[in-house]
Design a protein around this nucleic acid. Sequence first.
DNA 1: CATGATAATGAAATTCATTTTCATAATAGC
DNA 2: GCTATTATGAAAATGAATTTCATTATCATG
Lengths: 149, 149
Amino acid sequence: MKRLLERIDREILAAGGKRSRSRAVVIEGFFRAREHVTIEELTRSVHESAPGIGAVTVYRTLKLLERLGYAKELDFGEGARRYESNLSPHHDHLVCRQCGTVIEFEDREIEDLQDLVTRRHGFRPTAHRLEIYGFCRKCASGNSPERSR
Amino acid sequence: MKRLLERIDREILAAGGKRSRSRAVVIEGFFRAREHVTIEELTRSVHESAPGIGAVTVYRTLKLLERLGYAKELDFGEGARRYESNLSPHHDHLVCRQCGTVIEFEDREIEDLQDLVTRRHGFRPTAHRLEIYGFCRKCASGNSPERSR
DNA sequence: CATGATAATGAAATTCATTTTCATAATAGC
DNA sequence: GCTATTATGAAAATGAATTTCATTATCATG
């Protein structure tokens, strides 16, 4: 974690940015937070240790992390964006409609087929988003429709 | 087209709704419009023949069509939603980052694999969204970076 | 270390798509 | 035609995200 934060710090400097306490807190908070966090959730969690930090700074910091390639914007159609760290390899998401649980999965075969389809249409692919919505085992069984998020 | 509009009309009545001139205009406009239309685009096009119709009615009518299963909401991350008619069979989208061209495709194999993955994680799938972003042939060749939308 | 240049901050204001509210108008069923 | 109910459109409200701006912090120097 420390190494990571230092590396990001160096990249920001190299890009003409400056160090800042608030931003450091947000960045560390982001990597400690649960995956698929909203700005609002992250702001609240950051406020526990540093109540002075404005939500705007959280917005800005996540945009910055995205530009640097450390974060990825997600949109599960909930109205507010979510962000996930971009340290682990590419994956897609399985979202439970009932309890909100998100499972990450990776399927080489699907990826390859996507690439094929894309090229077949003369496109040069740059990114894709695949989200599958449904009901997780617990919620599908109809008994305990929990709401975890 | 006429048959379709009548059918929708009957369904609305059956669901306790009433006929309305404005709504009929919006519905017909929607099915005549280009695929993947935004509310704003559709409102503008509807205004050409019926300037009195408010954007709110367009919003409401598309929500209604969605509930009845005749329209599908899309989100290509542009800020505003798009809607497409849900008459043709399921398909996914290939979106050009440069000119905005959208190509629809369908790949049985990808669908099947998605289903497999989903069930492997104990989920009961209900829907999915797959969008592939990239550059279309024209834009990828770097020469004519058009902006069609 | 003082200083000037520049970047970062946070609060408030703004934007923009969408939704809600509400008074009025239209429609269906009797 | 009457009456109950639904639909409409304008305006207001909402809510996430962005911009503005005056202030503060940080950096690179001399």
